[in-house]
Computed example of a mutant assay.
Amino acid sequence: MADSHGSNAGEDQALVILTSDSLQTQGMAMILSNAMQQQGTNLHILLCDAAGDLAVKEYESSEAINTPPSNPAGQVKPEGILSMLLENGANVNVCAIYLPNSENEEDNLLEGVGVAAPGPIAEMMRDPSIPVYSF
């Protein structure tokens, strides 16, 4: 996790915390995160509780969600958007307590997904220049 008080000063950053197990909430969080990333925001995504499953290699949502008419994608799955965000440089972590409280291990996570340490996340949450969005 990058230090939000050092070399990233002045950089447009956001912390998105996703905990919901709702398919539509997960989808909207990923769609909005994608829009922020496309607008130049350096994204930090923290996946906790049921949302941590999105970062598991073999995970697949039960169904796709329909996108709004303004989005030509048609149907998407939250984990698909998450993979795209990762490929485009988003910093994605599962909560520190996700793995010890699930059947997954670090090897089960998508490449590039880490396990968040509470200290750096708390620093970001306290930094007034980094907005925090929670879903």
Rank of each mutant, 00 (worst) to 15 (best):
N42R: 13
E103L: 02
L23A: 06
A73K: 12
P69R: 09
V56F: 06
I31C: 01
A2P: 04
M30E: 03
D107H: 00
A117F: 05
D53T: 03
L86G: 07
S20A: 13
V76H: 12
A35C: 07
K77V: 01
S61V: 02
A117M: 12
E111D: 12
V94K: 03
I17D: 02
V76K: 14
Q75K: 15
C95N: 14
L110N: 08
V132L: 00
E60D: 09
L99H: 08
D21W: 02
C95K: 12
Y59P: 00
S22K: 12
S134I: 08
Y59F: 15
V94G: 03
E106Q: 13
M30R: 00
V16H: 02
V16S: 05
I130D: 03
M84R: 15
D53Y: 03
H44P: 00
S134Y: 05
L86I: 15
D12F: 02
M125R: 13
G52W: 08
I17Q: 08
V113Q: 08
A55H: 11
M30V: 05
L85D: 09
S20K: 09
M30A: 07
F135C: 02
N88A: 10
S102T: 14
N93A: 15
G10R: 07
M1L: 13
E123M: 15
L23R: 06
T67H: 09
S62L: 10
R126W: 03
F135H: 01
Y59D: 01
S61I: 04
N101A: 14
D53S: 02
L43R: 12
I97H: 09
M84T: 15
N88P: 00
A14I: 06
V94Q: 01
G80R: 09
V92T: 13
M125I: 14
P100H: 10
Y98N: 03
A117P: 03
G114Q: 09
D127S: 09
A29P: 05
E79K: 02
V115M: 08
S7N: 13
D3A: 04
A73R: 14
E79I: 01
K57A: 00
S83G: 14
P72R: 13
